[in-house]
Write a protein that binds this DNA or RNA. Structure first.
Lengths: 260, 260
DNA sequence: ACCTGAACACCGTTCAAGT
DNA sequence: ACCTGAACACCGTTCAAGT
């Protein structure tokens, strides 16, 4: 051992600490930066350069400001990334039945849709945001994910699953099956697309290249048959098919094991 | 834009490049380091300090050697992490029916087990290795994961799913549902345990603390009922129940939608 | 209230040099 | 063949100072 015990930092969360931005008195406008602008620039940079290409110094440069200015608004890089995380989670369009009736809205729409339809919507929105922001999965794995938008999402997911007919003590299992699946699926789909963008190559080209390199090192006869049976001419079509039917499997499982 | 286009590096893989260690002539023993020792120390350090606590300089110190010595054996930090990744994937005990009969073994055991049993074994081994090495999920998301042990695992997973009765063009969906679920589940389970170890707190303590902080910021009446119905007195029991039943859901879904 | 500049303790990696 | 040491171009963050 070199340094003895160096503890893994018991990382705090933005959502559990005081907000750093002070309340402004009166009309006094801030010049230059603010929280919104900083988080927006963060997400732009993350989308463009990936998590490993993002740094406080690069962000400052992007904002036309010195390296340390951002720290007046945000406590640490981790806190900033948590803000970006929750902002991304807020981009999902959730079924209104699940998030509760809107404030201004007096009557809910005539007939609430089937829980399966709602589940498919939430899952598909989650998938889409994971693919749109490939850095999101890493952050979801890193932080507690208890920001306001994340909580709305979790409540929506819970509300939908409660309508599935699954008994109360099985709800968390159903949630885990569906959303951990979507998380994993969206993660690799997003990373694959990002890799293609980065190397300036189409998804089909990279796909066939990867198949080629794996081909050498395994008895491929079995796997090849499966891959060919997979159907779909573009990678996107294959992914859509896989995703849709995997979700059908999960739904069928829930219907098979719900209260009988 | 500050620097214009800075591409996300189209990262290479250890498995796609020549091995750096030269063949040794004759009996000439290497002094000090070697591949095995380096990868072992890497995994020890990763287990103890986490991915963010790992650095080439810390590793060198651990090995009692100067910062740059490791680079004689390994091209980059990324390549070293890929080696650790595949070594971890090799720790799983896979059903022998799925990896093929062992070389020396003449007759396979009397009756091969049910595909459901085999699926549960592979899933449970995958879960366990993800929990044992909490850094594994991040690396699985980062690299291509085409090392020899990873390929064995994928073949085993494929072999089991082929016995499920799912038609050929649905196999990839079944694989995605099951293993993306296990990946996500193992990831958060492993991170949670690591967090507890790091702050020197029991899983139950951290669990109740987190429930407490979330309690404030949502209409918790619904969610509380679900969490209490979840059953199990320890966190470990809750997780085991959730995992087992989620897998049951997936299996039930596969049985419901397989060729009829 | 907001932003800067210098400095500290880190990184991964290159490269020339030692034995 | 194997290991070192100095150096380069980066990090996140602290802290005292400017306006």
């Amino acid at each position: 051992m070199a340094t003895g015990s160096r503890t893994v930092r018991p990382r705090s969360s933005v959502w559990l600490s005081e907000r750093k931005t002070p309340k402004r008195k009166g009309d006094q406008q801030p010049v230059g930066l603010d929280h919104l602008k900083i988080v927006a620039a963060t997400m732009r940079l993350l989308d463009a350069e990936g998590l490993s290409g993002f740094s406080m110094r690069r962000l400052a440069a992007e904002l036309g400001v010195t390296a340390m200015s951002v720290y007046w608004y945000v406590e640490t890089k981790d806190h900033l990334l948590e803000l970006a995380l929750d902002a991304a989670m807020g981009e999902m369009a959730l079924p209104i039945e699940a998030v509760g009736p809107a404030e201004g809205l007096e009557h809910t729409p005539a007939e609430p849709r089937d829980w399966r339809e709602q589940l498919r919507q939430v899952a598909s929105e989650y998938r889409r945001v994971l693919v749109r922001h490939p850095w999101l999965s890493a952050l979801l794995g890193e932080y507690l994910n208890i920001g306001p938008n994340a909580v709305v999402f979790q409540n929506a997911a819970l509300a939908v699953m409660r309508n599935s007919g699954l008994p109360d003590d099985r709800i968390t299992s159903g949630l885990a099956l569906v959303y951990q699946f979507v998380y994993g699926f969206g993660t690799i789909e997003g990373r694959f697309a990002a890799r293609c963008r980065a190397s300036g190559v189409t998804q089909e080209e990279l796909f066939h290249e990867m198949m080629g390199t794996v081909e050498d090192r395994m008895e491929f006869d079995e796997a090849r048959k499966i891959m060919e049976a997979r159907g779909g001419v573009t990678v996107q079509e294959m992914q859509d098919r896989d995703f849709t039917f995997a979700l059908d499997l999960a739904i069928a499982g829930i219907e098979a094991l719900r209260e009988r």
